[in-house]
Structures are given as structure tokens and as C-alpha cells.
């Protein structure tokens, strides 16, 4: 009943190529899902369908019970409750860190400047980057940028967070600081869907693992079962590749 995301029979094509094949996935409030799989398996495309950065051709996606269609108002209101963090951060380089954070609250949520600043400062504190508030993104390290990007999404007070390989573009020594922020967020009860290959993070945080290959969900199980006793051969092979 308390499903916040319901994906039913979802199929999507890029021209002739089918990237998603009949996907079914439900996410409850507060649940943490980790999606993994080889590149090109459709993981990113799947979560991008949840905030309609990608348009699907068949099936349905419901967020908080509302079906995503071409209706612009529905899409915009959905995006305000679904935050997204990208692999390449996508901070706005012409704005300071603080301005990056206040932009959406001020314009999408119509808060006044002081309210927006208050929220922005709060989340900058949470991701421990308050001292960089007046710098430009170009002056920050990758890890700092990604923490700012997380804070930027949180400023809209979303109910759901989507993470699209948030640590893949980072130098190895910066991965931890970003994962720490994500772990903290998970502990606070945020509903999260993470596409990631950080298996340590997955073991620690995930309520459910989803393994995708060639546009299909191959395996869906609890982390214990997924790592210790995977059912499909494909999953075993994949885990062998990345864990050793």
C-alpha cells in the first residue's frame, strides 16, 4: 500500500534498440534499493525513467501513486519530490556553491531568499562543506563537488533520492566521503535507489539488491542472499568479476 514507486511492465527503446524489457519494480517508503549490473544493462535508464529524464514507451511508472505522463505539471511536481545525483555532478559552473543550492528552492519552490539560504546553509553543514559556500564549482575537488550535488538535491526536501553512479567519476580516495554522506542519508530513513558498484556500501545499506543485464531484472533479493547465495549464473559471474 505504501509503495512510493511502482514500475509496471516498463519497456523502453532507443530507436530500434530495446534498453528496458518489461521491468517490474516496487519501492516502499524508506526502502533502499541498490541496482547493479554490467554497463549497458539499462540501470541508469531505469532510474532516469523515475523522474522522467527518459520517456518510456510501454508500461507505467507511478510516483506517490501518480502516473508519469507527458503532462508537464505532473513531471515538474514529481521532480520536486524526487532528487537526483549524477555521475558527473552537473553543478552549475557559473554559480557559487551557495547559489547552486538556493536556485531550485527559490525558483521551483518559490521560497524567499532568506528561507532558501537557511536551508542551503543547513545542508552545506550536513555534507560538511560550509567553508566552501562562496567558491565556484570549478575550484572544488570531485568529492566536494559530489557532496555539493547531494546537498543541492536535498534542498528541495525530496522524499526519494536517485543516485546514478555517484562515485564512478571520483578519484579513489574521494569515494569514501561521498559514501559516508549517502550512508548518513540512508540512516535517516530516506527512500533511495542507487545505481552503484560499491558493494561494501550495498551490503551495509541496501534493503534489496537488483541485478540487471541486457535490459532485464535478472535477480532481485536481499543483500545476504544476493552476495552469499546468488541464484542465477549471470549474477554469480558478475559478482566474481567485481569482488575479486
Amino acid at each position: 500500500m505504501n509503495q512510493v514507486i511502482e514500475i509496471k511492465n516498463l519497456s523502453k527503446w532507443f530507436d530500434d534498440f530495446q534498453v528496458l524489457k518489461d521491468i517490474n519494480l516496487n519501492v516502499k517508503k524508506g526502502e533502499k534499493i541498490v541496482i547493479c549490473g554490467p554497463s549497458g544493462s539499462g540501470k541508469s535508464t531505469l532510474i532516469r525513467c523515475v523522474n522522467r529524464l527518459e520517456v518510456h514507451q510501454e508500461g507505467s511508472v507511478r510516483v506517490n501513486g501518480i502516473e508519469l505522463t507527458d503532462n508537464v505539471e505532473v513531471i515538474e511536481s514529481t521532480r520536486k519530490v524526487v532528487g537526483m545525483v549524477f555521475q558527473h555532478f552537473n553543478l552549475f559552473p557559473h554559480l557559487t556553491i551557495l547559489e547552486n543550492l538556493t536556485l531550485a528552492p527559490m525558483w521551483a519552490k518559490k521560497l524567499n531568499k532568506n528561507e532558501a539560504l537557511e536551508i542551503a546553509n543547513k545542508y552545506l553543514d550536513i555534507v560538511q562543506i560550509a567553508d566552501q559556500a562562496h567558491k565556484y564549482p570549478g575550484q572544488l575537488s570531485g568529492g566536494q563537488k559530489q557532496r555539493v550535488a547531494i546537498a543541492r538535491s536535498l534542498c528541495l526536501k525530496p522524499e526519494i533520492m536517485l543516485f546514478d553512479e555517484p562515485t564512478s567519476a571520483l578519484d579513489p580516495e574521494m569515494v569514501k566521503e561521498v559514501l559516508d554522506v549517502m550512508t548518513k542519508l540512508a540512516e535517516e530513513g530516506m527512500t533511495m535507489i542507487c545505481v552503484t558498484h560499491e558493494m561494501g556500501f550495498a551490503k551495509q545499506v541496501a534493503d534489496r539488491m537488483v541485478f540487471m543485464d541486457e535490459g532485464k531484472i535478472v535477480e532481485e533479493s536481499s543483500p545476504e542472499e544476493f552476495f552469499n547465495n546468488p541464484k542465477s549464473e549471470r549474477t554469480k559471474k558478475f559478482l566474481n568479476q567485481i569482488l575479486h
Partner: peptide, 24 residues
Amino acid sequence: GQYEAAEALGLNYFQTMRLVILPQ
């Protein structure tokens, strides 16, 4: 990515253009 980030933050078309894309 700039368009996507702006849209993912719930900015509408005109806000995306005016605040994010055109200044750059």
C-alpha cells in the same frame, strides 16, 4: 548534463533557460 540537472531540480523550461543555460 546541465539541462538534465536543472530539469531534475524541478525547474521549468523558462527557468532552466534563464537561470542555467543562457548565462553560460
